[in-house]
Nucleic acid binder design. Structure first.
Lengths: 343, 343
DNA sequence: CCCCTGAGAAACAACGTTGTCTCAGATTAC
DNA sequence: GTAATCTGAGACAACGTTGTTTCTCAGGGG
């Protein structure tokens, strides 16, 4: 016998059988006590409670759910990147709703990988989550049909699903872009530049479409410049702005498709001391610290997560209601500081 | 009979029994096919696979885990607020490690509520997570002893546990404060102000202790000013700085206990056009946009989450190794812009 | 005194899966 | 040709819990 000195801490967790044996009652009586059934003799209840505390019993809710056929009280959230404040805000808002429903939240990041998105969704369905909230990244979510058909509801956030119908919660990107362009037009700008990143994403193409609609409505679309930059390279936004401003009759105002592009644009404009009206998307934290005045299209990110979770729980309870799309409104807000004091 | 027109989509998910009946084999054979056991006749394997696809069978991994006694392949993460970038960075890093181990992550926020922390931990233990990562908020984590005794490992992050021993991953707050003060001393400052928020938190008291140690080592502690502000009120940091600077012989350098205090201090210093050396903690995103030069104590937040998760998985595999504390290093970095171009 | 009633607890089966054992049929060795 | 070996599949029980049914034993009325 070459056992360790210390008794091994890691003992099997006690089950209702252990508690029942210790208290000298049947397993079912333990179950009744745990579930607070009122028809248990107070003396027995006391004995069982004592045994539970002594053994440190904690009900295995996994087994309980399996037997009773109740829901697992879990939902899954598949976002693109939990480290990104936009998505973590969505996650936090969804978690808050889940808490109201005594439900735990699986949070997983697909990392813009459609294959990974599929794997995660399948894994979570195997774990029998009550529902899924997905920020879709792939071209096609039809792989989810088998799951939705079998009663696992799915709500899509920030991008509409492709290849399958379903509930969605979206930002009014198109309307936001229209409002922003409208503001620039009202201020007298008629040579407007639009800088986007990859138009493969629904979000960006909606923003471009909205801007274009408004420019065309004002009859100044032919004087506009449109530039699409690659999505993830840093500095390219600044280069694009530099090229725009170097043209013969450069735009007097530039609308940037997201906050990264806006940051790059601000950097370039400040560097060359140019006087260009800048507007952009995403009212990120610290936007007010930008060293140049800008107008941004803002929206309440937390609403996305909250609405999505509420929609999901509603559909869990009422699977037969027809699909709905919730559009989160946008607003214009002025950010950036006019000047900063030198040290 | 008053059934709905459409066939109800929500049908019970098919089980191995259904697949077995459909394929004309025993349940065990279905299990073997699902688990890729090699001793199955290819013809049967084909029949079973067909039946699975037809029915849209997806193994219930909850039931599988229950029977086989294997782990649930889930871990729980209890942080203070998922919407806070500091904690969401930790969560993202932990999730990345969990993914390597084919484990799903429950993410929950305690919201600085010790009661809620306890409830969440108990709930996750009832769900038989393989382990917990906790950013403790309460005064006492001894309630976890029952769980750790029964083999649910816990790793603490960002703050050491109280009332219980355990693995921890912490920031070198004390060392960071010493380094920052050292820098200020080296630059010739000997009247140094220290602004903290509530010293109830381990983090803040460590930072203060480190600063005090260094000031005392240099023999300038008597010329220093110490101010503790309430934790969550905005603007109080600026007020504290204002009061400091209004004194007879004001400090020439101020060390701020966290990024919120530093922001307030920058605002106040810029407003009054003062020339005060500012330093602080937390190298937050956009710190480089601060309209005033500052030096901050930085650290790799993702390391906290990554180390914690790796430690947890190690302990899950080897429960008997002795507890360890991992200290994440800090570094000094200069941030803030000297000047910004006016529009 | 006996039967009926009902409260409270135990016995049994089941949730969906897998571990263990058994068995039928094919293959090999003597 | 028969016994020993092996291969592959089914039967059965079990994981930890709960729904359902059955049982026991007071208490009360005829």
């Amino acid at each position: 016998m070459n056992d360790r000195d210390a008794a091994p801490k890691r003992t099997r967790r006690p089950t209702m059988v252990d508690v029942a044996r210790s208290a000298g009652v049947s397993v079912k009586t333990v179950s009744r006590v745990v579930n607070g059934v009122s028809t248990v003799d107070p003396a027995l209840r006391e004995r069982v409670g004592l045994a539970m505390r002594e053994l440190g019993f904690r009900r295995n809710s996994v087994a309980a759910n399996l037997r009773s056929g109740r829901s697992t009280a879990t939902i899954g959230l598949i976002i693109l990147d939990l480290a990104n404040p936009f998505y973590s805000t969505i996650a936090a808002a969804a978690a808050r709703v889940a808490q109201r429903f005594d439900t735990q939240l699986f949070t997983a990041s697909s990392g813009w990988d459609a294959q990974r998105e599929t794997e995660l969704a399948m894994d979570l369905c195997q774990r029998r989550v009550d529902g899924l909230i997905i920020v879709p990244t792939g071209e096609d979510q039809s792989y989810l049909r088998a799951e939705t058909d079998q009663g696992t509801p799915v709500v899509f956030v920030d991008r509409p699903p492709t290849g399958i119908e379903g509930d969605a919660v979206l930002i009014d990107n198109r309307g936001g872009a229209r409002t922003a362009v409208q503001r620039l037009l009202t201020e007298g700008h008629d040579r407007i530049g639009i800088v986007t990143d990859s138009l493969n994403s629904w979000t960006m193409s909606e923003r471009l479409a909205g801007a274009r609609e408004e420019l065309e409505a004002a009859g100044v679309a032919d004087r506009a410049r449109f530039v699409e930059t690659p999505s993830d390279a840093p500095g390219v936004a600044g280069d694009a702005v530099a090229r725009m401003l170097g043209e013969a009759s450069p735009p007097t105002a530039i609308l940037c498709g997201n906050n990264r592009i806006l940051s790059g644009a601000v950097g370039e404009v400040v560097r060359r001391g140019a006087r260009v009206r800048l507007a952009g998307f995403d009212d990120f934290e610290f936007a007010h610290l930008l060293p140049y005045p800008v107008t941004v299209v803002g929206y309440d990110t937390a609403s996305l997560g909250r609405f999505a979770a509420e929609l999901l729980f509603r559909r869990i309870r009422e699977p037969e209601i027809s699909f709905s799309s919730t559009i989160v409104a946008t607003y214009l807000v002025d950010r950036g500081i006019a000047a900063a004091a030198p040290c």
